[in-house]
Design a protein around this nucleic acid. Structure first.
Lengths: 245, 245
DNA sequence: CGTTAGGTTGATCTCGGTCAAATATCGTGG
DNA sequence: CCACGATATTTGACCGAGATCAACCTAACG
């Protein structure tokens, strides 16, 4: 079965979906809203009644401290579901902003109850995603506290690449990175200056090559070893999932 | 209904449990295993076939880098479920160690499938917990990258206090903190020396008082404001949860 | 083409890391 | 119950990675 839904292709990477499941998922992407690069999609503190399936483009969730600093808490790629991390809250704890032009399919929180009852296996899969993201976040925390600037940025780039590979298995060693060095700094906890120096030094050491926004790893295996990168996203343990009735 | 299960009292803080739900939960705590302080409970890389309900005591999950640094990824308190963050993995990504003597109730991963099918409302609640923990982790990331040592440690202490309050609503302003300054450092990304200086300076500024392992906040409202602390754990949005049949 | 967001590089300074040594507390066996 | 060794806390001195400030360069886009 062919599909043009990034969500379906992401999930299919991990489990073989039943017809009922894919029909339900397809239904989630009925309406689409578009946002231009730099648009704010949800403001921190605003009631968050929907979650969103990302159809195309990148967006990110962030908080800015009163004293100028900005933290990029997460980055979303096509096929991701934005707002799962907000389910426990009535009001958004993060501001969501488009990093590129994006197309999103909104989906009311209220409609999730039915999914929880009728599609326990998909819920288990989303549960597993939460665990994956948690592990990736621990890796980031490790990077921020234990690694030097160069390794920290290198790890970040490897993580982005790994995320993209889920929905684009044939991505190879290069990809377009539409993030400014300021956003990267916000994500890893470094100033733009340090991010820039880290990137330049990765270039000098022939670990990466850049061409406009295209970034290419020249020796990702070696780099991964240097910074203890583990791809958390490639596989999930589905052995405990509920069966299909 | 009275219970001596920390898990049941934690969950009851958020939703009113049905008889079927509490019976099921009580069943999870049938067998208990005990570990002494400092014992390793699960080793990183070991197959993780169970998750654990914490009956009493504290434990923590951590990774140590080859270069000596140690990251404390999470801390578990009575009523918590250890290993939910490992569900996506066949092998543990963290080492779990007892911070005090602990009593744990193991529960095979394989038995979760049934719960996902039969208790969607509890699954939704655990989903919401995952979101809460995620938010708390973002706060930690913010602390590690944007705050100075004093504020970072202060935020950590406030977070621990907030977690304990869930199962002990009448905890007041003081609590026992059985963590060494080294563990605190591992959790917030500081050296023991800096943790110590931060704690001492909070003491000098009359923000906290210590007596052995007992820690007391002298002005938690003011301190919370200083470090932008938000208690993520007190309330969850249950509006979207599936109904009871 | 001109405006502006973003990238690059140098100089300086600061916070927290590291090393080291003293003190206090815990826990265990005699 | 005490004494001793192991663990944990506290404090000082020094040092370095990365923040900050500032200037300049480049490229995208109307």
């Amino acid at each position: 079965m062919t599909t043009n839904s990034c969500l379906v292709s992401k999930l299919s990477h991990y489990v073989e979906l039943t017809k009922a499941e894919s029909d339900m998922l397809a239904g989630l992407e009925e309406t689409t809203q578009h946002h231009r690069k730099r648009d704010c999609i949800v403001d921190r503190g605003a009631p968050m009644e929907d979650i969103f399936v990302v159809k195309s483009g990148w967006l990110y969730g962030h908080v800015s401290s009163p004293d100028g600093g900005e933290l990029v808490a997460d980055i979303f790629y096509p096929g991701d579901v934005v707002g799962v991390g907000q389910l426990a809250f009535e009001e958004a704890t993060l501001t969501y902003t488009a990093a590129t032009d994006v197309a999103l399919c909104p989906l009311p929180k209220r409609s999730l109850g039915r999914i929880f009852k009728e599609h326990p296996r998909l819920v288990a899969l989303f549960f597993a995603f939460a665990a994956l993201e948690r592990a990736a976040m621990i890796d980031r925390l490790r990077a921020a506290t234990l690694l030097n600037a160069r390794d920290c940025v290198a790890l970040f780039l490897l993580q982005v690449h790994a995320r993209l590979r889920i929905t684009r298995p044939r991505i190879g060693e290069s990809f377009e990175l539409p993030l400014t060095q300021e956003m990267i700094g916000g994500a890893v906890g470094l100033s733009t200056v340090s991010v820039n120096r880290a990137i330049r030094s990765l270039e000098l050491e022939n670990r990466i090559r850049r061409n406009g926004r295209i970034l290419e790893f020249l020796n990702s295996a070696e780099l991964s070893k240097e910074v203890d990168f583990v791809d958390r996203f490639y596989k999930v343990d589905t052995s405990w999932f509920p069966g299909l009735d």
